[in-house]
Design a protein around this nucleic acid. Sequence first.
DNA 1: AAGTGGTCTAGACCACGTT
DNA 2: ACGTGGTCTAGACCACTTG
Lengths: 247, 247
Amino acid sequence: MVSAIQRDPLFMKVRRVILEAIQSGQFAQGNLLPPEKILAQEFQVSRATVRNALQSLEDDNIIRKQHGVGTFVVPENSRLKMRIDKVKGFYQLIGDSGYEPSIRKTEMSRDLIPDRLSEILEVPRRSEALILKRTFMGDGKPAIDLCEYIPVNNLSSEPQPGEVPDSVFEFADKFCPDRIEYTITEIIPTTVSISVAEAMGLPRNHPILKLEEVHFNRTDKPMIFSEIYVNDRIIRFTVFRTRVSFI
Amino acid sequence: MVSAIQRDPLFMKVRRVILEAIQSGQFAQGNLLPPEKILAQEFQVSRATVRNALQSLEDDNIIRKQHGVGTFVVPENSRLKMRIDKVKGFYQLIGDSGYEPSIRKTEMSRDLIPDRLSEILEVPRRSEALILKRTFMGDGKPAIDLCEYIPVNNLSSEPQPGEVPDSVFEFADKFCPDRIEYTITEIIPTTVSISVAEAMGLPRNHPILKLEEVHFNRTDKPMIFSEIYVNDRIIRFTVFRTRVSFI
DNA sequence: AAGTGGTCTAGACCACGTT
DNA sequence: ACGTGGTCTAGACCACTTG
């Protein structure tokens, strides 16, 4: 079952206050935040809690800490919204990219699962899967073409047309016995096939990004496979990488 | 100046011991690690230190924690070595992909910087840059074609041919006034041009992944631009993504 | 020398999932 | 009810950068 209620931890409250202060440009003198000690006093919390809040902001590339110096606000222009390692859903992604998101259609069908996918999803060959096809649009133009394969054995109830959520995470919450705990994505350059060219409104042989995603439950069992084509005229993925020293 | 010496924190020692135990399959009964409390007692450290060690292992997708349940070893087959958000250097990346890495050549030249890059690197138009071109091989076949642009004003000393490090991070450490603090990478699908096709030994119009990287120093100043072509027959990038709930 | 973030301790209580 | 990881405290000292 999906637990919807969860108390908001203290550090998340602190995070929100700091984030608002950043966004309203409050302590933006030189983009330097007050020291952790001061923040702790100000918020009447321990330094560990402040550090927890700052850590979560650093993960999102909002701030950057430097040992012996201080905590800096990362300039807007090097913030990244289309981080491929932070994708939550394509609808939101298109919005973040500055386009008006919409969904053209949702096709739902049942069919035998391709042999390659039955291996990846660890289900018997020639077993059945629910197949969902959708095209996400940005400003009315095709941005993302998506095809999801859910083996019928991984379904806990049968979705009706019209009640399919935008995001695969919500889909699993509603219609699968387990939620998706993590996802592994492979990035593949390719050129558009005839069918994709048609769906995306692109010339044949146009280069395009293909993503193959496998969604796992908490016991590391693969649940769902997604095949995704991304129109690079609308969506450009980025990666943020900090220097790491140790192994 | 680059500080080479740094004391190894306690939690890194703990991390190493846990990692070795995982790799030697020691506490692999059901892939469940002992509780944090027990680990703390065993290593004679505080629970916070154990948590710090476990956190770093979780970041690397070695373990996965689940609130109320325990800490699990992630199965080998869903470990990822070619995480695009964790790339340290291409030489190592090729090795991680299971190929014998080598470097074909390093071309070094000075030339005017292209207008587009002068904007990205925030230097005056028509200023000069050091240009480094290299091809990384895997098992003798071209795997990665790399072209780096370093504005001459961002150099602190002049590299001699033969003393150019494999990694751009080490290059900046040696020949630039600042080290690279973080990198933003854009992922672009494209097809090979004539020159790249030649360098990579690929047919014309073959789809290929292009990466455009901008390397920043600690003051968010762009220092170096890299243009990278990745042969997807040898290197396949992956992304690891866990479910996140809050904003 | 001063001030910052990084590490570490020894406790305590809470939230979550299982039994 | 129990055991797990998650959060939080109040302190201490260390490592790094800068003046």
